[in-house]
Write a protein that binds this DNA or RNA. Structure first.
Length: 571
DNA sequence: GCCGTTTTCGGCCCGACTGTTTTCAGTCG
């Protein structure tokens, strides 16, 4: 039973308690604990063996005992009893927009509604409207909600949401009433997947902006529309929320709507202890109308005696404490990136020729690029024979002679086979400038096997970078079982770089792991794995992930200029 | 249920929108 399994059970307990009508604080306590365990980088089993679960924030006596019981016996008696009282399927009802725990409980108790299908039947027979607290509109909303739920898509990739948000922002900027407009929420924090798009605007006439927004061409359906906020479903099915505030409230509103929720709760708690109150309209003294700060986010943090916290760090993972001590890391930025060490060309499975890849990279301000086409064994991806590698080398040399102030590195992406063996012999590997190795098959092997394969590649003195180290593909393939702690140690010892793959559905290593890798002194290479020149721009997603993992420029190999990089590559 | 340089008890972030409850509870973010 891993961290995610346990977090899911605690979350389910919270759901059931919520419906049961338990104290919201107790419910919150379970949710907080679930959250802590789910974002823990250590294995909970190990934490448990090594000592006290209660050192995990949000876990006290009660939940520690229950988690222990779960690890020991495979179940929690308290949870089983809860499920006797409220069938777990009732929890599904709460997924329906407009239905919360209170109403779900009423529906279960009065009409014995246990599933979404039960509810659909009851609504169609108009049994719901007569119940106190419901009405005809409630039935209507439930029907709409169920429809929405059924067609609602999973969270979408950051790279899909981002352009749509940019488009909406452009359109809002055309409204003369709009003064400022920005992305907020998880989009501004650049989480790897996005549930809905949050947008904030400032205006002296908020209600007019809200109306303007609801009339945009992208709007399919309006969910709610008020003077200062509106929610719509866009034609592509994504929910977009707009908030509009007055100009002198913009900073506090942006801070508030950027989140994360956990970051904000912590911040407000701190404010409260100082006799202050934060809401979306500003920072105030308790019981006073006078705004102390609010025009800019910087003001808010400054008024709380903190450094400004970049949006990508606002996840309540210790950034607030560091900001109070003025010890925040100086995060890496896109402008620090000097080159891309893992891209493909039309020699293997890429779309564009080496020359085009190099020119585009140069336009992006890079000074080098490593063309790492697939090696011999990966036939499906057009892997290169030794002869083809030699032909390609001649082309690279020719391009390097033509290009000024830019270097194409002769690279290769090796396949780590099921036994940990690589495509070419050591003698041949010596001829490359950059050697990347990665796993492309055998994803279902045991943790021991996959870790061993990876370590063997790391131990090869010619392998410079392990690419996409966990193999996950967001929404399609979970990460394979691999002991990252062991991998980090080996990588640090041998000076092998681990990749942060910027491809939007990979982002591998993910943000949570980067901090741990940094702690082990592992050097990271942020690469795009571009298969076309357009993909080179995915670097922004890789850098965002690095920022979310608190990486600094010095932690990343391809922030070095070429001369320095060559030193790094020499193992 | 958790937590503590104001507390081991008594707090726990805060406000907008909706629908129906004639003064507010539930839901949502």
């Amino acid at each position: 039973m891993d961290n995610q399994d346990i977090a899911a059970i605690l979350e389910e307990i919270a759901d059931l308690l919520d419906i049961e009508g338990e104290s919201v604080f107790r419910v919150q306590a379970y949710r907080r604990a679930a959250n802590s365990i789910s974002s823990l980088t250590d294995d909970i089993n190990k934490v448990c063996q090594e000592g006290d679960l209660r050192k995990i924030s949000g876990i006290g006596k009660g939940i520690a005992e229950k988690v222990q019981e779960l690890l020991d016996t495979g179940e929690i008696e308290y949870f089983e009893e809860l499920k006797e009282k409220i069938p777990p399927s009732v929890v599904e009802l709460v997924q329906i927009p407009s239905l919360g725990p209170k109403k779900a409980k009423i529906l279960y108790e009065k009409l014995n509604i246990q599933t979404v299908d039960d509810l659909l039947d009851a609504v169609n027979q108009h049994k719901v409207a007569p119940i106190k607290g419901f009405g005809p509109k409630a039935e209507e909303n439930i029907l709409k909600g169920i429809k929405l739920l059924r067609k609602s898509r999973e969270r979408i990739l950051l790279s899909e949401a981002y352009p749509l948000a940019e488009k909406i922002i452009n359109q809002l900027q055309r409204d003369s009433q709009v003064i400022r407009v920005d992305m907020a929420g998880s989009l501004r924090r650049m989480k790897e997947t996005i549930g809905d798009i949050d947008i904030l605007a400032s205006s002296d006439e908020p209600s007019e902006v809200s109306s303007y927004f609801c009339e945009l061409a992208i709007v399919d359906r309006i969910l709610a529309k008020g003077d200062t906020k509106a929610s719509i479903i866009a034609k592509n099915g994504l929910q977009v929320d707009l908030r509009v505030v007055l100009p002198d409230q913009y900073g506090s509103a942006l801070q508030y709507f950027t989140g994360s929720k956990e970051h904000n709760i912590h911040l407000r708690d701190i404010a409260k202890k100082e006799g202050l109150k934060i809401n979306e309209y500003g920072l105030f003294k308790v019981n006073s109308e006078k705004q102390i700060a609010g025009g800019s986010e910087e003001e808010i943090y400054k008024s709380l005696q903190m450094q400004y916290i970049p949006p990508l760090m606002r996840e309540n993972r210790g950034e607030i404490e560091l900001a109070k001590q003025h010890k925040l890391p100086k995060l890496i930025g896109l402008e620090d990136i000097k080159g891309d060490l893992h891209v493909h060309s039309s020699w293997s499975d890429g779309y564009d020729e080496i020359k085009e890849m190099a020119s585009t990279a140069k336009e992006l301000g890079y000074s080098y690029i490593a063309i790492c086409d697939h090696a011999e064994k990966l036939k499906v991806a057009g892997g290169l024979s030794k002869a083809e590698v030699a032909d390609r080398k001649r082309e690279i040399d020719r391009i390097n002679n033509e290009m000024d102030g830019f270097t194409v590195l002769n690279g290769i992406e090796l396949n780590i086979d099921n036994n940990g063996k690589l495509d070419y012999d050591d003698g041949f590997l010596e001829t490359f400038d950059v050697v990347v190795a990665s796993i492309h098959a055998g994803f279902n092997q045991s943790e021991e096997q996959i870790t061993k394969r990876t370590i063997e590649a790391i131990n090869n003195r010619h392998v410079d970078i392990i690419a996409h180290p966990t193999g996950r593909i967001l929404g399609r393939r979970p990460p394979y079982a691999i002991n990252l702690r062991t991998v980090f140690k080996a990588a640090a010892e041998t000076g092998t770089m681990l990749e942060l793959n910027s491809y939007p559905d990979r982002l591998d290593l993910k943000d949570d792991y980067l901090g741990e890798a940094k702690g082990e002194d592992v050097r990271i290479a942020i690469n795009t794995d571009a298969h076309s020149k357009a993909h080179l721009k995915y670097m922004i997603y890789g850098v965002a992930t690095a920022q979310r993992g608190w990486l600094e420029s010095k932690d990343v190999a391809n922030t070095h200029i070429l001369e320095e990089l060559r030193g790094v590559i020499q193992k």
